[in-house]
Every structure is written in C-alpha cells, then in structure tokens.
C-alpha cells in the first residue's frame, strides 16, 4: 500500500447526501440510506449478496455462500463507510406475510474501505485513501440506481471528511468505467487486467 496513487487535481462534487428516495427508470421507489454502521444492517446486506448472480462477480468479490459473504463483510464492516438501497414496496403491493420487513429488500450496496494498515488509528478521514466498490442486484441493473447510489456514497463520504477515493475495475467492463467517469473518476496508475481509477472530493 506504500505506492503513491495519482488523483485528479480538480475536486469533484458536490454530490447529494443520503437519505433520499429516487424513482428508477422502471418506476420503482428506491430508498438510499447511510447506516451508522454496517453491522446494524448486516443480515439484510448478506441476504442481498447471497442473491447476487456470481457471473457478475469482479476480482473475487462478492464471495459465494452465506458464510463466506458474512465473513467477508464482517472483516471490512467496522471501519467502512456504506450506503444501502432498498426497494420500497408500493402501498398496494405490500406483502402482508413479510411483517416487520416493511422497509423492502436491500437491492444495492456501495462502500468505501480504508486503505490503511491500522484503520482503528485513523484520526482524520482525509489522511488516508479509500477503496470503493458498488454492487447492484441483477434485476435492478440498468435502471439508473448505480449512478444514484454512487453519487450518494460520494456525498456521504464528503460529509465525513473523505477526500481521496480509488477503485479498480476490470479493464473490459466498459459500462462500469463509463459510470465512474460520469461522476468524475479518472484513470490512474498502471493498466493491467484491472484499471485503477481515482477521484478527489470537495
């Protein structure tokens, strides 16, 4: 992690802060929230990843199988910054059997994980770099949710003082690269199978 990553000179933003409710291109109400800590919503997020089609995995994540998913999320949950999207059921199609689960299922998740050897010792979020990942369940892809969720994650990140965010994306994943470029990410670092990109926040 000692390698210096390049960041754009110009900051990007401002981005919207959660919570928000947006309507996706299919007319579905999608609620975007930032949980205080992922641990409080862990079960619902594990369930989302358990439903995630493994053909859309990237660079080994998410893992498959509930235990491995839970283990992966628990490892990164504590120090991470998260936004979660729920599909809010319309009043006329609430499933009475689901009872307490009236907030709807988690259908997308985006997070930032600190790039630090000792995350617990972080004093200022602006001191370190944060790695981004975003996953949208297959049935909710290509409806604009990813763009909204990504912008809200960056808005939330800015609110908590994060300035430098990076990610890697498989070099042939043009839709994802286009999405990242739209919000202000620029290619950085060496290209190999994965493309590294970075953004500086206001």
């Amino acid at each position: 992690m000692g390698r210096a990553r390049l960041y754009p000179d110009e900051p990007s933003g401002p981005f919207p802060s959660p919570p928000s409710t947006i309507e996706d291109r299919e007319g579905r109400d999608i609620e975007i929230q930032a949980p205080g800590e992922l641990t409080t919503d862990l079960d619902a997020v594990v369930e989302m990843y358990d439903r995630f089609d493994p053909t859309d995995r990237a660079q080994g994540i998410p893992p498959t199988g509930e235990d491995r998913i839970r283990n992966w999320l628990e490892t990164i949950a504590e120090e991470s910054v998260n936004v979660i999207a729920h599909h809010k059921p319309n009043d006329d199609d609430i499933d009475v059997d689901s009872g307490a689960d009236s907030g709807g299922d988690v259908i997308a998740h985006a997070m930032l994980v600190p790039d630090a050897d000792d995350p617990a010792a972080i004093e200022n979020n602006s001191d370190i770099e944060w790695e981004l990942a975003i996953f949208v369940l297959q049935d909710y892809q290509q409806a604009g949710i990813g763009t909204h969720l990504l912008k809200h994650l960056l808005g939330h990140a800015s609110d908590v003082g994060i300035e430098r965010v990076w990610l890697t994306v498989e070099r042939w994943n043009n839709p994802a690269i286009a999405l990242y470029e739209r919000v202000g990410f620029e290619a950085s670092g060496t290209e190999s199978f994965e493309q590294e990109m970075s953004i500086r926040l206001e």
């Binding site: 660079q59 994540i61 992966w72 790039d115 790695e131 890697t168 060496t190 190999s192």
Partner: peptide, 14 residues
C-alpha cells in the same frame, strides 16, 4: 488483495 478483498493482478503477471 486490495483492502476490499479484490484480487489484483499487476502488469508483470499480465
């Protein structure tokens, strides 16, 4: 492995 747990293959590997 990245902090997120992503597998990263560098340019030498490629």
């Amino acid at each position: 492995l990245s902090p997120m747990g992503k597998i990263q293959l560098g340019p030498i590997t490629e």
